[in-house]
Simulated scan of single mutants.
Amino acid sequence: MTPHANPEAAMDNAIDHSPLHHDGATDVGVVVCHGFTGSPHSMRPWAAHLVDQGWSVRMPLLPGHGTHWRDANRTTWQEWYSEVDRAYADLSARCDAVYAVGLSMGGTLALRLAQQHPELAGLVLVNPAVTMLRWDAKLLPVLAKVIPSVPAIGDDIKKPGMTEGAYDRTPVRAAASLRRFQAVVRADLPRIAQPLLLFRSADDHVVEPVNSAIVLRDTASTDATEVVLADSFHVATLDHDAQRIFDGSVDFIRRLSDRPR
């Protein structure tokens, strides 16, 4: 068989779930957080753009992700957050200023990082998720006891030919843990005072727009900006507006890093 004769195998080979650990030449560091049932694949172009600035970058693979959805059901939000917190600690040991960027649940993890570490220099969020409005969300604790998975809503990308490489099933027990995590983060939003740049897709089939509204309303950030993405769906980091996110995050971090500390 010739290489990549199987189209599905070719797609699998194109997806890179591996974490990224890069030490840059400046005193700026960035923690990059991927989303629920996803992997660093959805964030890799953004992370590469941050690396190109000469910054140190840590992009962890969250426990239970990048393998099989059953593995996610064996993990909890505390384990996901601990992995991000370790990445932050690693960067803090070598950088004067550390920022956090995240997509979807990755944005939730970045928010928790800001709550736990007031010294975090700033946040860039893309379609962050702090609540679930679907009618069945309240049933997750019960469903988790009887149903291991449900159909996933993946690859919500407007740009043709793009895939985020997420699980093809949603692990219900892990989703129940995510819902508990969102409640914890939502309750502590007033503790966040760091500068905040939030990108929101105007047409998102996964995370409701009220999520961004809650973040902007309840955080204490006086330096907070919302940018609406008109040409992307949920996974905007791989969509038509991706470059706008990449460039905007760089401008944001450079502006803050140039401030006297």
Rank of each mutant, 00 (worst) to 15 (best):
P3N: 10
A10S: 09
D12E: 13
S18H: 09
P19V: 01
L20Y: 11
H21I: 05
H21Y: 15
H22S: 02
D23K: 08
G29T: 05
V30N: 04
V32A: 09
V32C: 11
C33R: 07
G35Y: 07
G35R: 02
T37D: 07
S39E: 06
S39H: 08
H41G: 01
M43W: 03
M43F: 06
M43H: 03
P45H: 05
A47G: 10
V51T: 12
V51C: 13
Q53Y: 12
W55K: 06
R58L: 03
P60Y: 11
P63E: 13
H65I: 00
H68R: 12
W69D: 00
W69H: 12
D71H: 11
R74L: 14
R74G: 11
T75N: 13
T76E: 14
E79H: 08
W80I: 01
Y81A: 00
V84F: 05
D85N: 10
Y88D: 01
D90Y: 10
L91E: 00
A93N: 12
C95S: 09
D96N: 11
D96Y: 04
A97W: 11
V98F: 04
G102D: 00
L103V: 02
G106L: 12
G107Q: 08
T108S: 14
L111T: 04
R112L: 10
L113D: 01
A114R: 06
Q115Y: 09
Q116C: 06
Q116E: 15
H117L: 10
E119T: 10
A121L: 05
L125H: 08
L125G: 01
V126P: 00
V126N: 02
A129I: 05
L133D: 14
W135Q: 09
W135A: 12
K138W: 15
P141E: 13
V142K: 11
L143V: 03
A144W: 15
V146F: 15
I147T: 14
A152M: 13
I153G: 03
D155W: 09
D155A: 02
D156C: 00
K159F: 04
M162L: 07
M162P: 00
T163S: 13
A166I: 04
Y167R: 03
R169K: 13
T170P: 02
T170D: 05
P171R: 05
R173T: 02
A174P: 08
A175H: 06
A176D: 15
R179Y: 15
R180K: 14
Q182G: 04
Q182H: 11
R186Q: 14
A187Y: 14
P190Q: 12
P190T: 11
R191F: 04
P195R: 01
L196P: 04
L198Q: 13
R200Y: 14
A202Q: 14
D204C: 00
H205R: 13
V207L: 04
V210W: 10
V210T: 08
I214F: 09
I214V: 12
L216P: 03
D218E: 15
D223W: 03
D223S: 02
A224S: 15
V227Y: 14
H234G: 01
V235Y: 03
V235H: 05
F246M: 12
F246N: 03
F246V: 00
V250F: 13
F252W: 14
F252T: 00
I253T: 08
I253H: 10
R255V: 03
